[in-house]
Write a protein that binds this DNA or RNA. Sequence first.
DNA 1: GATGAATGAGTATTCATTCAT
DNA 2: TATGAATGAATACTCATTCAT
Lengths: 216, 216, 216, 216
Amino acid sequence: MTQNPKTFENLPDEKRERVLNEATSEFAEHGYHQASINRIVKRLGIAKGSLFKYFGNKQGLFEYLFGHAINQFKQPLKHIRETTSDKDFFERIEKSLLAGVDFIQAHPHIYRIYLKMLFQENFPMRDKFLSEVRRGSTKYLRPLVTAAMKSGELRNDLDPDMVVFHLDSIMDRFFQAHTVPYLDGPITLYDTDKQTTENKARAITDFLRRGLGNPS
Amino acid sequence: MTQNPKTFENLPDEKRERVLNEATSEFAEHGYHQASINRIVKRLGIAKGSLFKYFGNKQGLFEYLFGHAINQFKQPLKHIRETTSDKDFFERIEKSLLAGVDFIQAHPHIYRIYLKMLFQENFPMRDKFLSEVRRGSTKYLRPLVTAAMKSGELRNDLDPDMVVFHLDSIMDRFFQAHTVPYLDGPITLYDTDKQTTENKARAITDFLRRGLGNPS
Amino acid sequence: MTQNPKTFENLPDEKRERVLNEATSEFAEHGYHQASINRIVKRLGIAKGSLFKYFGNKQGLFEYLFGHAINQFKQPLKHIRETTSDKDFFERIEKSLLAGVDFIQAHPHIYRIYLKMLFQENFPMRDKFLSEVRRGSTKYLRPLVTAAMKSGELRNDLDPDMVVFHLDSIMDRFFQAHTVPYLDGPITLYDTDKQTTENKARAITDFLRRGLGNPS
Amino acid sequence: MTQNPKTFENLPDEKRERVLNEATSEFAEHGYHQASINRIVKRLGIAKGSLFKYFGNKQGLFEYLFGHAINQFKQPLKHIRETTSDKDFFERIEKSLLAGVDFIQAHPHIYRIYLKMLFQENFPMRDKFLSEVRRGSTKYLRPLVTAAMKSGELRNDLDPDMVVFHLDSIMDRFFQAHTVPYLDGPITLYDTDKQTTENKARAITDFLRRGLGNPS
DNA sequence: GATGAATGAGTATTCATTCAT
DNA sequence: TATGAATGAATACTCATTCAT
């Protein structure tokens, strides 16, 4: 590998961003293997050799770009934990749902790459990235659940691991349904406006509260 | 598809099966575009021209194979409805979980193709196949839910659409976690033995009963 | 070569004709190399093997078919000579023009194959067929010219070879212009009705009479 | 054409010419569809990808090459009009015959492609190129004819459109007979030396003068 | 540091021809 | 005699990658 990421990092900010954006949207649209370096450089108007100087090869470009993106993924979760109190578990869930949708709408390309990666075994660095994302999700939800069980917000006859599995499934599906049709079933979410998203997040939270919350 | 698949259907059973199996596993491993007709025929030891005689082109092969598979998908669900009574909603859910896993373990390639299709926009016939699968899922779950609400098994303060969304999310995640690592979170399912699967299905069902069932 | 033309000749008339017709129109439409045996048998609804049994290979089919057609080519010229007298040279030319157009309109496929063959060196049997046709043309025209010069209908200061070359060029172009656009120049012939064709043939004949005829 | 031909135009002159020459002779020998990119690159000793970089696809190569050639076609006609006076119509025709043969002998491949295109309907850009050539021909001849009729060189009882049709037929056949055997009839032109060509052109011109010229 | 021409193995697809049934 | 499944070399075209300028 002859790449030299320093070369790329010395580029003017604006150009660096353009490169990453165009490449990201190419990968988002076509997945890893169908993405075409030819198309990327044509859209960018730069020489093919330059891209290879920056990142060595296709995989290097992808890893750089997705590693870069994954950091932004962690911001919103952190923000929620900091701006909400331990007191209201279900409010936190609701805010997490909305924050997730916000992030997806702000960075649709990254989320689409992530979804493609989920079931495509031959993405480079797939193991590394996916385990990182999943670990992040569990590390975020589990303390919320155990705290809520301690404080009595959640019923105490529940298995915390089950609750995490449960919440994770519902939340992920909620996000996916905002990105891909077919996944919403009877509650239509795809391509709807913000107002509707908020109503649905509220409805799901209420539903969870009724199912998991302490009736007392 | 310029060829009608009569030629293929006249083949001896054994050969027909070998062709479908090799092709299916190629698509399962690589997705649609990365799947290589060259590799398929090399593994089969038949001439390239033959495959095109059978199915006209790559897309024809895929459609035949996946359309064929999708029919098998519908059998287990039907079987459950017929062999269980309306009386125990949660037993039905538990059996559905196990039947789904059984199917996936019997046809792992087909399920992997389906998962790849979910987030890969350029699969041929994606719209047709996905909407067919999703519709099947909703059409299966909704009557179960409304019947259970009528009979008093499910709490009557729940929105049936929400329950369906809920069940669908959990069930899908349960299946996916059997196929793809990373998706199980704290409850490990991937690559485990049958005993464990049954315990987990039972645990999830119990959990749902506690959350959604009528306490009376 | 394993072909057996007897096999074909034993076929019922109706089938034999259908085979020749479909094959002829395939060659007329696509030329020799682009013509597809696959398409021919599909249109005919017969087995591919049968065609090869009849004619051995693609070239055998073409030779049979075109040899068959070329005989029909000779009929109209013969007919003209027999039904007109030596007395009116220019009437003969005019009738020949109309007879040629009639033949082309009755057998458009054959004429189109002939035209394609003219400039496509790799038609099988091209040499044999073309020289046969050209010889036929000269053998038809030359006696007409010499007779007319003797009888005084044509000016006697003309070189008979030149007259033949001349007439041949004009007549061929007249036929081609009925089949292919672009070749008519300022006198539009392509796709016109019979009335117009007759007018044009008359006009050309008159023109020739003025140019070549004996003014006395 | 997805590629603009800048890449090709930046190539060193010598290479550019070799590429065009080999490609032209391939198309001349085999026509459009039977021409093989594989053969072209093998003969050139360059990579297949390069040719596609230059011209995008087979059709792009053909259009570039033929469009390029068609411009050269127009030079000799223009040259004749400029170097001859209106005074001698038949001298102009004679010079045109010789100039045409000169061009054809200098660019035999291009003329052979043109002839193939005449009766092969599926040449790309056939309509565009043929109508351009034909229009050029008519636009060249018609003013010559009308001028000559006005000046009294041509008999005034002739229809100018007929004269054009006439001249066009004769001239084209004269050119074709230099390229393809069979088309000369009793006056042999194919593969003959320059001396003979000049004699024949003179003979044809004299013949035309006798037929069309004003006897006064 | 940037360029962009060159590469060649890879892709899906077509086709005339053969031959066992 | 008729069938139609099997063949494999051929086709146009794409693509990540290299490297001399």
